[in-house]
Design a protein around this nucleic acid. Sequence first.
DNA 1: TTGTATGCGTTATCAC
DNA 2: GTGATAACGCATACAA
Lengths: 341, 341
Amino acid sequence: MAATIKDVAKLANVAISTASRVINNSGYVSDETRARVEQAVKELDYTPNSIARSLKQKSTYSLGLVVTDIGNPFFSEVAQAVERAAREQGYSVLLVNTDGKAEQERDGVDLLVAKQVDGIIWYSPINSKLAEELSQRKSGPVIVTITGRREPIGTHTIHINDEIGAFEAVNHLIRLGHTRIGYIAEPEGPEYPQERLHGYLRSLQEAKLPVDHSLIVRGDYQQGGGRKAIKEILKNRPLPTAIFAANDLMAVEAIQYAREIGLEVPQDLAVVGFDDIMLAGLRGIDLTTVAQPKYEMGQEATKLLISTLKKEKASRYITLLPSLVIRRSCGYRLKGSAVSW
Amino acid sequence: MAATIKDVAKLANVAISTASRVINNSGYVSDETRARVEQAVKELDYTPNSIARSLKQKSTYSLGLVVTDIGNPFFSEVAQAVERAAREQGYSVLLVNTDGKAEQERDGVDLLVAKQVDGIIWYSPINSKLAEELSQRKSGPVIVTITGRREPIGTHTIHINDEIGAFEAVNHLIRLGHTRIGYIAEPEGPEYPQERLHGYLRSLQEAKLPVDHSLIVRGDYQQGGGRKAIKEILKNRPLPTAIFAANDLMAVEAIQYAREIGLEVPQDLAVVGFDDIMLAGLRGIDLTTVAQPKYEMGQEATKLLISTLKKEKASRYITLLPSLVIRRSCGYRLKGSAVSW
DNA sequence: TTGTATGCGTTATCAC
DNA sequence: GTGATAACGCATACAA
């Protein structure tokens, strides 16, 4: 059996409370007994049982991270930031993967609640009523949601302004002279924010360009989905000269497919994605894209969560802006000449 | 405050122990009182406090996952498999990122021990003495290491036979007719397994090819490192006609650099990587590589860990074989003609 | 400065 | 069938 504080106390010939004091650096303790206790700790290789400590103090110093798909490089970069920020503050993180399924989400969150996490960073609020309700509770974990929706989910949310991101992306294409711009869209349904679609539409509207609904095809955010969608879009005549995709994974597939059928990117087809995953920056891909501040998102969410736990004042609603990263997949218009790069 | 079993018992007018019985389905309980208790549970929205349960039962049903870099797609795919396998068995997973630093590793593992995880999946045994020692302990978490080293680390290990993987990769290049094959190697130092280097050397030996040490340059497994290494290697004359890299990230950079300076891949320079991260399979990259069975690795490690916890008999040393995935970055030799693809 | 005693929410071992 | 009660390992209010 692992040593307990009792063993330490016995070996050092002091009461448990005294041992506890030196271990936690709390209250008065003479140098002499402190030394004895420290010696005993060393000898027994004692590590405090934080389960017992948690039970007593009603704080586990751990937080849950709920994501759609940790295997996806986008989420894993956010997770990295969360883990780091948490560790720096002495918290550990329990990982829950939802695979985008409401049932797994519910079970996962239940588990986190049972495990008494102090807080949850929720980047997959599929069932937003659940999140809403949980964060309303007076007891239980503090909930911080990360979302592209404009309306906050729960009481503490990190909002990424997807609408503006999409708007800027499409504006960029319009400034380059494109007028027929296809959109590989986010999936339909209440569990998916539709802000990127809104941004796309607003951009066309403000430029007084017509909206051709057959140029908008729903994707699934997954590998394989971009390919299906672009095929559908390219059935239209005249062909669109540009494509905006709701995420990079689908955008990259669109580029690949276009090249397979003999279209040059960006000369024949300009492509802009969303997310800025590592892949987007590689030579040979060079995808222009709306960069989400992944590291910041994870970091800000964690900071907000922990400062709330510590009851420091902290903003409850933080908006982060994505930014357009221009690479070679959309070319640029030289004055008086054709689109090139 | 959240409801406790005490509240449930009170509301249902039974003793705590009775409430506990129905909640855990243990021991005899009349249908009538069972119903009353269940009603109370529902009414109070009671969730058992698993911290208290853990303290009593000395089992937390959670396990630690220690990785070098969760932001790296390679590790995140392994993590995904671990999370899934764990959840399916009722375990949750605590994530620890080491950033490849021995100190963070030690702190992280200490934390996991303090949090009383039942087991640790350790895919970053930088300090293998630490792992060795921890897994020797009679008490404390069960340790399962994942490693490319031939010698087991600790008592339970998932071994990926990197040596054979590298051997096969280089053999493939040799069969294609290459005789000057550069190697962007794993970093030096005791914390890095050198099995890939061994495989590379053995392959040359068995083919009776000379080993030119100026064609072997250490990389760092990171972004940026592949570029530096390939530059170094390409200073040699005559130029090598093929490059093997210890991971895909570096291999991809090698391809990029080669193209920048006007070398065609694979015609002028064949390239083979190691890992098979998602990126490798993309059109435009098409990297031939040694595929690590990422999903299997995570799954097998988790299974081994949990079955050990349940004291079922289970193999303590599992070897997994990587497999060569042939894509376009190394070309192929047509009989009687030049290397092409 | 140190020790005693209580309780955190459970489970499990007893009696009844 | 059911109900007291001890214990898990620790922190802490209070006494000494």
